[in-house]
Structures are given as C-alpha cells and as structure tokens.
C-alpha cells in the first residue's frame, strides 16, 4: 500500500544560490521521515522536485519506482502535497475548500470521509466559516484534510507547523502518527528541532547538504563529547565568560541555560575548571549539570563542522 521514495544525487541551483548539492536519500515505504533544517536548507526545493513542480539540474528521484520527471502525472495522482503557505482559498468556506479539492481529484468528501474523519471533526463546527478567518492551527488542519482528500499513498508536508501554536503542533503530530499507521509514507519538513524526535528517521539539512540521516535516537547517541548545562545569576555575559575557558567547546544559549561541550577525560575536573573561571568573573549561584544531547545540540555541532569544511 505505502510507497518508497528514492532520491539520487539531486542538485538544483537558482541563479546564484545552490539550493541542493547532490542530495541522495532513501525513504522506506510507510516511514514518517523528517527533514530538519533552518530556512534555506533546501527542504522546499526538494519537495517541489518530488512533486514535479520544479525540475532538478541533475540527478533522479522516484516515488514507488516511478520517475518524478517522466511520470510526474502518475506521481501526482498518489501524492498529497501541502505547500509551505497553506494553499487554501481564503474567500471560500471550510466546506467549500474541501469539496473543491475533492472534486479536482475526482473524488468526493463523502467517499473519503473515514480517512479525514479524525481531523475533520475538529474543524467541522466551523465548516461555514471562511478559511481566511480560521486560526493558524485550524488552517493547518484544513490544509491537511485537503491534501489527504484523494487518499494519497505519499504525503508531503512542507513546514506544516510553522506559525502554529504549541498545542496545535502537538495535536498535529498525533494526527501524523495516526495516518502513518494507516499506511501512508509521510515526508515532513520542519525548522523546529524538538519535532525531530517524533519522526522515524530524520535528515538534518543545511544549505543544500544532508548532514546526517538516522533515527533521532541514533543521532543523539552519536553526539561526541559530554554536554553540560550551565546557569548562573548573570546570564547575559555567561556565553562570553565560558568561551574564554580553553577546555569548553560549542558554547551557545539553549533556552534559559547555556550549553557547553567537554572533551576532557574527567568530568569533575572540567566542572571545576568552569566554576573557577566563572567565580573569577563574579558569577554567583553557579549550577553545572550533565545533560543528554538532543537533536538541536547534534545539529549545531554538525553545522559547525559543515561550515569549517
């Protein structure tokens, strides 16, 4: 039922920018696969190539063994695509939007109601409201319903959670989980690192390169060095203070803490070095704790390496 996606050496440049640099990926049938990376990483370009909206400069890609260049019409028939901007008609109501998308795929809302039921029940009370008047989370659910209306075997979601509140984001991922169980291959891109752990596998992308492809737990397990979280009473110059400690690497603000990575063989000695240096600068209430690296730490570490090359 579900389909694999195969990407081979895809490159794409716009005038001066190289959006994709020989990207190769294999996505298994039925996988919930995440593309994680900041704006300009090349996620949207890759999705547009897969849906046949733009042509790659070189390389090939296939969906269910069908070439996305030659058989783009067949590929489009089994693909549900939700572009970065919710592609809804803001002057049409919720129901009108759904019916329209159903009819251009030669199907109807009734026929596939069971498929989108879980999502649609949440927006059904507003079915007579214009799409433009919906909240971000509601728009996103409507757009997802529209992308799902023709029972696609592959669902491509371009930053579906950007600009959506935390609660809606959580609900949205629960929906994706459910659909995956229904046997749909899902490709989803997101700039939010915390969403990476919800995918089966993720590709970390930066400026057209794939930095790493693996399960979220493998990626974090491969983190080199020991991560520490530091907190003091003078957070504003903490980063500068820590950067002056020779043993401390990869110092950056992370939420209300500062993350520091140590390659020192002895953690206690390292903590001692840090707290001495901080006390010298007049920091008080110093808390230094060992931390398990999360995807964002891995991403930032990989990014440093990528830029160094």
């Amino acid at each position: 039922m579900s389909v694999p996606v195969n990407i081979q050496n895809i490159s794409k440049s716009y005038e001066k920018v190289e959006a994709l640099k020989a990207v190769s990926l294999n996505i298994k049938a039925g996988e919930l696969f995440g593309f994680i990376g900041p704006d300009g990483a090349g996620k949207t370009s890759l999705f547009r190539i897969l849906t046949g909206l733009i042509l790659p400069d070189s390389g090939t890609a296939s969906v269910a063994e069908m070439d996305v260049l030659k058989d783009f019409k067949k590929v489009r028939n089994i693909t549900g695509y939700m572009p970065g901007r919710f592609s809804l008609y803001y002057d049409l109501t919720v129901a009108e939007n759904l019916n329209f998308y159903a009819s251009i795929f030669k199907t109807s809302l009734k026929e596939n109601y069971d498929l989108i039921k879980d999502i649609y029940v949440q927006i059904e009370p507003f079915s007579n409201r214009k799409a433009g008047d919906l909240s971000g989370g509601m728009k996103q659910k409507l757009a997802l319903s529209c992308a799902l209306i023709h029972r696609p075997k592959l669902l491509i979601l371009d930053e579906p959670t950007t600009g959506v509140d935390a609660v809606s984001r959580k609900e949205f991922w629960e929906l994706l989980d459910k659909m995956q169980q229904g046997g749909i291959t899902i490709l989803v891109s997101t700039p939010y690192m915390d969403e990476a752990s919800l995918c089966n596998r993720v590709a970390l992308m930066q400026s057209g390169n794939v930095l790493s492809v693996d399960t979220p737990s493998n990626i974090t397990a491969r983190y080199k060095g020991q991560l520490f979280a530091v907190k003091t009473n003078k957070m504003h110059n903490l980063v500068t203070a820590l950067e002056q400690v020779p043993a401390a690497t990869q110092v950056y603000r992370f939420g209300d803490e500062v993350h520091v990575t140590s390659f020192h063989e002895n953690d206690t000695v390292f903590v001692g070095l840090l707290s001495d240096a901080l006390k010298e600068k007049g920091h008080l209430d110093i808390q230094i704790n060992k931390k398990q690296a999360v995807i964002e730490d891995c991403f930032l570490a990989l990014m440093d390496k990528n830029q160094a090359i």
Binding site: K73, R76, Y81, P83, S87, Y89, I104, F105, K106
Partner: peptide, 13 residues
Amino acid sequence: EMGTMEALLVSPL
C-alpha cells in the same frame, strides 16, 4: 500569489 496554484498544479487537472 496565494500559493494555491501550487496545489492546482500537483492535482491531476
């Protein structure tokens, strides 16, 4: 402009 053309183009129309 609205991005709906993207959705129309990926449809079988």
